[in-house]
Simulated scan of single mutants.
Amino acid sequence: MAKFESYERREKQILSKLAEYGIGSIDEAEKITKDAGLDVYHMVENIQPICFENAKWAYTVGAAIAIKKNCRKASEAAAAIGEGLQSFCIPGSVADRRKVGLGHGNLGKMLLEEDTECFAFLAGHESFAAAEGAIGIAEKANKVRQKPLRVILNGLGKDAAQIISRINGFTHVETEYDYFTGELKEVSRKCYSKDPKSPRALVNCYGANDVQEGVAIMWKENVDVSITGNSTNPTRFQHPVAGTYKKERTDAGKKYFSVASGGGTGRTLHPDN
Rank of each mutant, 00 (worst) to 15 (best):
Glu76Phe: 13
Ile50Phe: 13
Leu111Tyr: 04
Leu15Arg: 14
Arg72Val: 12
Lys56Met: 07
Val100Pro: 04
Leu184Tyr: 10
Glu30His: 01
Gly266Val: 11
Val44Thr: 02
Thr235Pro: 13
Asp210Asn: 03
Pro49Cys: 00
His104Ser: 15
Met1Ser: 10
Arg9Thr: 04
Pro271Tyr: 03
Gln146Ala: 05
Ser87Glu: 10
Glu126Asn: 01
Gln86Trp: 02
Tyr206Met: 05
Leu112Glu: 03
Glu28Gly: 01
Ile14Ala: 13
Ile167Cys: 11
Gly214Lys: 07
Ser226Asp: 14
Leu112Ala: 08
Asn106Leu: 09
Glu5Ile: 06
Gly22Ile: 05
Ile50Val: 12
Gly263Asn: 09
Arg145Val: 01
Ala19Gln: 06
Lys185Glu: 07
Glu139Ser: 02
Tyr21Gln: 01
Arg166Ala: 00
Asp159Pro: 15
Tyr21Met: 02
Ala64Lys: 04
Thr235Val: 14
Leu111Ser: 14
Ala66Phe: 01
Gly262Tyr: 11
Glu186Asn: 14
Trp57Asn: 14
Glu114Cys: 09
Arg72Leu: 14
Val211His: 05
Val259Ser: 09
Ile47Glu: 09
Ser198Ile: 12
Arg9Asn: 00
Pro91Ala: 15
Ser75Ala: 00
Leu107Val: 08
Val151Ala: 11
Arg249Phe: 06
Lys255Gly: 04
Gly133Arg: 03
Lys56His: 10
Asn142Phe: 06
Ile90Met: 12
Ser87His: 07
Thr235Lys: 02
Asp178Arg: 12
Thr171Ser: 05
Lys246Arg: 06
Gly264Trp: 01
Ala36Met: 08
Ile164Pro: 07
Ser16Cys: 12
Gly124Pro: 05
Arg150Phe: 13
Ala141Asn: 09
Val187His: 00
Thr181His: 00
Arg10Lys: 05
Glu28Thr: 11
Glu117Cys: 14
Leu202Lys: 13
His270Arg: 14
Phe119Trp: 10
Asn142Gly: 08
Ala58Cys: 12
Asn233Trp: 13
Ile47Leu: 05
Glu114Thr: 05
Ile137Asp: 02
Glu28Leu: 04
Tyr192Gln: 15
Asn209Ile: 06
Glu20Lys: 02
Gly24Leu: 13
Leu112Trp: 13
Ala130Asn: 02
